[in-house]
Structures are given as C-alpha cells and as structure tokens.
C-alpha cells in the first residue's frame, strides 16, 4: 500500500514547512502592500513586491466550506474514509485547505471555529484543523 503524500518543500516553502516541524504556523506578510499571503511565494500575488516577511499566524480559524469524502483519491486515504476536507478561513485573513480531525464528520458545519494541531506525516508535520 502506498503511503499518504508528504509535502516536498521547495525554495519558496521550506521556511513554512520547517516551522511546521516546530509546531509553529507561518504566513507571509507583504512589506509593500500589507497583504497576508498563503501559500508562500517568492513575490506578493497582490502587488508583485518582494518584501515578504515570515509572520507567526494566529492558529485559529473558521470553516468556510467542507465535504465528507467517501471515495478516496488513492489507496493511502482509504482507511480514513469518511474524512473531512475543509477550507478554513484563518484569523489572519487567508484561507487554507486542511482536514478537520478528531471530530465526528457529522458535527462539522460551515462557520465552525477550529484551531490548528499538527499531524506527523512520516517526519514532516502538517497543520490540521480540529474543533476549537
């Protein structure tokens, strides 16, 4: 059986994933226009500026939308079915995709407050959401 995919950091994202391994969540704040950016890039997608400051995120948010997945994309996810895939609006004003974990899928709803926990995925920690 294939293992679940592990993110492969690149030059844009390595600081983000290294911080995750210390259980810290980062985003990029643009020094030119103030945009709070996620996912990490080499430039600001709002203004094109390059002064992006890694910033510690408030580890809380609210569910913008979610689905309970019952048909897995690969063998690796079959044992998790049914699992919740969600888009979470973070307190700092950007959106992340995560699973909502340690929670009955039937209890998830739009607007539900969540906080970040970290899953250890074969040595790389991944941010996940759980009810706040």
């Amino acid at each position: 059986m294939t293992a679940k995919p592990v993110p492969r950091p690149n030059a844009d994202t390595a600081p983000y994933w290294e911080a995750c391994n210390e259980e810290r969540l980062l985003y990029q704040k643009c020094g030119a226009c103030g945009h709070n950016q996620f996912y990490p890039r080499s430039i600001c997608a709002k203004c094109g500026g390059g002064e992006l400051a890694w910033t510690e995120a408030a580890p809380t948010g609210a569910v913008h939308s979610f689905t309970v997945v019952e048909r897995a994309p690969s063998e690796a996810f079959k044992p998790d079915i049914p699992y919740v895939l969600a888009l979470v609006d973070m307190a700092d004003g950007y959106r992340m995709m995560m699973n909502v974990v340690d929670c009955d899928p039937a209890a998830v709803e739009i607007g539900m407050a969540v906080r970040i926990v970290f899953e250890n995925r074969h040595g790389q920690k991944l941010p996940q959401a759980t009810p706040a």
């Binding site: 492969r8 995709m97 699973n99």
Partner: peptide, 16 residues
Amino acid sequence: QFEVPYGISIPAAYAL
C-alpha cells in the same frame, strides 16, 4: 504541497 497531502479529489474539490 497544500492540497494533495490532505486527500483532495476532484469530486471533493467541487463538493467544497
């Protein structure tokens, strides 16, 4: 890096 590790599928994306 930011979707596939969470078990996204095309139907799941449209379900969102």
